[in-house]
Design a protein around this nucleic acid. Structure first.
Length: 226
DNA sequence: TAGGCCATCTGGTCCT
DNA sequence: AGGACCAGATGGCCTA
């Protein structure tokens, strides 16, 4: 999705310091440089010339030099401000670019995570937060499965496989992937479910394929909503 | 139309 | 100084 600002931002970005001369000689900028009441400029000496030789009393050279100095200072100020603005602009644009890239990488990592999680029949794409919660719960389930297998309890031999078990996962959780993702994790001391978090171990959403039934009676920890 | 989700921009802060 | 990270703001898109 192209950002509306992108065009003008990249235009500004193109205004490198080397381009500033054109930027600064813009008629508007030059106009701003002129003192409001001033009639100075290239035509001023010509007019004086038409009036004849200046007298010593009106110090014409000094006034002109002062005006010229002021003009130069004004131009220099505008030039440095524009340079500063351009530098800031170009750094901002670069930073935006990096940030965009960073978020794309983050999204790619999330996609990779989604790809190893059991998916649902309707190909519902988990949201970011769902993906993270689901992954958390999934890891918990796998770990519990291994733990029970180590204890020689029945049903602990086959951890759920993301690809092959997608259907059976879906059968329990398709109604609400979000709910499944939001389901509880292990903290033996914590309550199975809270008012905020209704998905307890007895909930069908909590039944992982291959997960020992014993696990359904453990007391999981919930990932809190914020 | 309201609410959720998302992408992007932005300025601040911390780190190298 | 420049890059990474973060959180807030904003606007677009989609769905109930």
């Amino acid at each position: 999705m192209p950002a509306p600002l992108e065009i003008c931002l990249s235009d500004l970005d193109c205004a490198s310091s080397s381009d500033l001369s054109g930027f600064l000689t813009d008629e508007e900028d030059c106009a701003r440089l002129q003192p409001p009441a001033s009639t100075s400029g290239p035509s001023a000496p010509a007019r004086r010339g038409a009036q004849g030789m200046p007298s010593a009393s009106d110090v014409p050279g000094a006034q002109d030099e002062e005006q010229e100095r002021r003009r130069r200072r004004g131009r220099a100020r505008v030039r440095s401000e524009a340079l500063l603005h351009s530098l800031r602009r170009s750094r901002r644009v670069k930073a935006n670019d990096r940030e965009r890239n960073r978020m794309h990488n983050l999204n790619a990592a999330l996609d990779a995570l989604r790809s190893v999680l059991p998916s649902f029949p309707d190909d519902t794409k988990l949201t970011k937060i769902e993906t993270l919660r689901f992954a958390y719960n999934y890891i918990w389930a796998l770990a519990e499965t291994l733990r029970l297998a180590d204890q020689g309890l029945p049903g602990g031999a086959r951890p759920p496989s993301p690809a092959s078990d997608a259907e059976s996962w879906g059968s329990g959780a398709a109604a609400s992937p979000c709910a499944a993702a939001a389901s509880p994790l292990s903290d033996p001391s914590s309550p199975a479910a809270s008012e905020d978090f209704p998905y307890g171990p007895g909930d069908p959403l909590f039944s992982f394929p291959g997960l020992p039934k014993d696990l359904l009676h453990t007391t999981p920890r919930f990932i809190p909503y914020h």
